[in-house]
Design a binder for these strands. Structure first.
Ligand code: MN
Ligand code: MN
Ligand code: MN
Ligand code: MN
Lengths: 220, 220
DNA sequence: TTATATTTTTAGATTTATCTAAATTATATT
DNA sequence: AATATAATTTAGATAAATCTAAAAATATAA
């Protein structure tokens, strides 16, 4: 089965929302897709007729197994292309998302497989998100939010929750990227902000909001 | 100015036809694009309104300077991606065209520039066709059809006229690729076929039709 | 529990790209 | 030059993806 660019974007949007809420509803998908609820309803009919969705009018919807597999295919392509853009073309990691948003719709399966091999079959994209394999299997990693880490413990940044350009731009200023090692020194109870030390730089302070969106794992 | 995928494909089609005939007419473009003359007329109106064409009803049409620049941009992207697919992903050169036909429409200008640098700013694609630079400048190379080469002269294959999968598949069987060195031994007057010797292989015979579509230049 | 607000769907319009069939214009042949 | 043929355009239809406005269903609050 093959899908249009629009179908693929919707499938991916539903997948992301149902990760969090189980059932997805029309308005939240409309917000996610930056479109109108009426357009969502149109697309839901289409995806249901292609047997990718469980959907009852007014009751919400979610992808079935075929739909989830379709979503994981697109996510795999998106993250592989992001990896290519950062590792091979030396893009900054906060610039690649919109380009991967286009590249993920290139249809050749052989292209994806060869790209995967060319890149050395990476497990995580430049934002630390896992890259599904060709069967849709996702690697897992134990990680915690930076806001939950004990003081003085050495940890490695593994991914970022909020991936807006604004957030990524901010992290660049702190010199924080995937793989960066750091330690939490102190928590300010006043606003929940953290004093942290990033590798060889001077200690600095990040807001609670940033801390909650930075995920880390133990240093190997 | 940005263009839809369909607009870009038409622009490229017109460019290729006007290289040969100067003025292009509706039916030949319809044949080239595998569509209907009526669809061509619709698109001509659109491209004219975007000021890419000189077009008088019933009198034929051709791209103006803006149109030619737009065409060269797409051709540049197409050929850079083909180079990437063959050189980096190790695709056979007769498999890359349809994939590049999609990749050429990815819009990021920075992507193209970085890809160009990553590939080492190549001048020719895997079929021997020149890759325009970002200003639309095309490298030139003196080349002749294999059917015009004197006997026993050592030459290097520089490009292929007919780039259908059928032709490229045939050349693969003869072990002929861009960069292959060969010599013409004899011409059979009966059907115009040529006996040639490809590097260290046994001599073999190619039809006149193949010979006319293989272009070569002097060995450096 | 009834009234009000929110969510979702339907109905119908718009835009883009395409098509077929018919009309128009240009070219070739007698 | 008149007629036949070929090329091109127009008119109108279809399909996909979107939209707005209104109707219908559901959820919430007085
Ligand atoms: Mn996308
Ligand atoms: Mn990512
Ligand atoms: Mn194309
Ligand atoms: Mn080529």
């Amino acid at each position: 089965m093959s899908f249009t660019t629009s179908e693929e974007n919707y499938i991916k949007g539903i997948f992301h929302l149902q990760q969090e809420t189980g059932l997805v509803n029309t308005n939240s998908l409309a917000a996610e897709m930056q479109t109108r609820p009426a357009s969502v309803t149109d697309m839901l009919k289409k995806l249901k007729s292609k047997k990718l969705l469980q959907y009852e009018k007014y009751k919400g919807f979610k992808l079935n197994e075929a739909g989830k597999k379709a979503a994981l295919d697109v996510i795999r392509k998106h993250r592989l292309w992001e990896f290519f853009l950062v590792e091979k073309l030396k893009f900054d990691w906060d610039k690649v998302h919109p380009i991967a948003e286009e590249l993920e719709h290139i249809s050749s399966e052989e292209l994806v497989q060869r790209l995967d091999n060319f890149l050395g079959n990476p497990s995580f994209d430049p934002h630390g998100d896992p890259i599904p394999d060709k069967n849709g299997k996702i690697p897992v990693i134990k990680q915690q939010s930076l806001s939950e880490i004990p003081f003085k413990k050495n940890v490695t940044v593994s991914s970022v929750g909020n991936q807006t350009a604004q957030m990524l731009d901010m992290l660049k200023h702190y010199n924080i990227a995937i793989g960066t090692q750091l330690t939490v020194l102190k928590k300010f109870e006043f606003d929940g902000s953290l004093e942290i030390k990033v590798s060889k730089q001077n200690a600095c302070i990040i807001s609670e909001q940033v801390a909650k969106n930075v995920f880390v794992h133990d240093v190997q």
